[in-house]
Design a binder for these strands. Structure first.
Lengths: 233, 233
DNA sequence: AGGAAGTTTCGGCGCAGCCCGAAACGTGCC
DNA sequence: GGCACGTTTCGGGCTGCGCCGAAACTTCCT
């Protein structure tokens, strides 16, 4: 019976300190053990033990760089598991009342953030809605497709989707990701990743130091309004 | 910070007894508290406590029927979380060596089983491969699409996909689900559910009592070969 | 009503796991 | 080399949680 394997994984995620570290790593970047200790609110020794366990289980991988050891999520699969996890966790029973702990950082996170390799939060959902409204993307049944019109629109906006080498399908597909703060789908998959890197490269969005949150630049604000038809940012 | 919520959910799944119960409920049917106690290998009182916690957290819902209380997964979302969970759990670190515990029941499970509302195991993967090989379905980037030829083929085989009322897209989409035993995708989503119920209704497959495993009937064996081009069952 | 079966509540036992202080190890800087 | 910093290992204290025995409660059957 593989219930033991499930339970092992559950125990790994079922510790506030470890959950906080994994949550912090969900933007796909690598953090040092010390930084993660601060994030988790525990002493460095404790964090070290947790990180060793997570790494041994294959959830994290480490890169040694001088006297630092940088930890990152082992793969996009892990990030997707965590996404699903957070979605269900935030949807299930609210009563415990941990919610009052919403600080300014959470506000920025809800506004716009990265979700491993794509955009989430109000901005991510708004972008997704805009593309659906313009007929560039269609969603159904936990899957999405980019229409012919959508391909043109994206190319025109400067977003390249040509990773043709790995693609078998004639039509570009994409994956929706249910947003844990908005409880509505946003764009994930290759399209989501392409949009996110495009926005960052063009300096329309900037990462907020030490957080998954994103800040819309002045240039970004006008591009969002004029190119993508999103006015509230 | 919502790491606490994540941790709460993780702890819920991080108990062998609870994991075993949830795993047993993944076929979407309802089981009584006593049955679940046996599955989990604990006393009825212990199971009762676990079930109360799972229900309170919104993972399960109960239906009272006489002196029995039937428990089932609260939603398809929960089933999907568990799928993802099992996939990562079986993919991560093998060393612990729990694997030798593979019994005859596991063999049947690997052969063919339900995955909440669709087919999984060798049969599920073979069916998926067959549809891809015939150009009925295309997969990429964690999403899938049924081609025009596929729609015809399915209609001809007697599988109806017309839940048009809830569908926004012009083309039927479907969702892939990574199989934890085969480590390859199979058909989930509406198409997967439609195929599964079709196979059961036509008596091509039968549920094995008290298990998620499925048995291929004689009729099913020939239909699989002649209609779907799958010979090994 | 009386009995049986299924389920839940209560109480106490025992183990597992988290946490931190202290100290060792490895690495970079002066 | 010597020092400082980041990280890991070891040991002990503490808490929390799962487990089951006993008993109450509900529902069905005769």
């Amino acid at each position: 019976m593989n219930a033991y394997r499930m339970a092992e994984l559950g125990l790994l995620l079922g510790e506030p300190a470890r959950a906080a570290m994994l949550s912090a790593l969900m933007d796909g970047r690598a953090l040092s053990a010390g930084e993660l200790a601060i994030v988790a609110g525990v002493a460095p020794q404790t964090a070290s033990g947790h990180l060793a366990r997570l790494t041994e289980a294959g959830l994290l991988k480490v890169e040694r760089q001088g006297r630092h050891r940088y930890h990152r999520l082992a793969s996009a699969d892990i990030a997707q598991l965590l996404e699903t996890f957070m979605q269900v966790a935030s949807a299930s029973a609210l009563p415990p009342g941990r919610s009052p702990l919403i600080g300014p950082r959470d506000v920025a996170m809800r506004r716009a953030r990265t979700c491993y390799d794509h955009l989430a939060g109000e901005l991510g959902v708004a972008l997704c809605d805009a593309l659906v409204a313009r007929g560039a993307v269609e969603f159904d049944d936990g899957a999405g497709i980019v229409t012919a019109a959508g391909v043109d629109m994206l190319r025109e906006a400067g977003v390249s989707l040509d990773n043709a080498g790995t693609r078998r399908s004639a039509r570009p597909l994409c994956r929706p990701c249910l947003d844990w703060s908005e409880r509505r789908p946003h764009l994930a998959g290759k399209l989501g990743a392409a949009l996110c890197s495009h926005f960052l490269e063009q300096d329309l969005l900037r990462r907020v130091e030490g957080s998954r949150a994103l800040r819309v630049t002045g240039k970004g604000r006008s591009v969002l309004r004029e190119v993508w038809g999103i006015g509230a940012f």
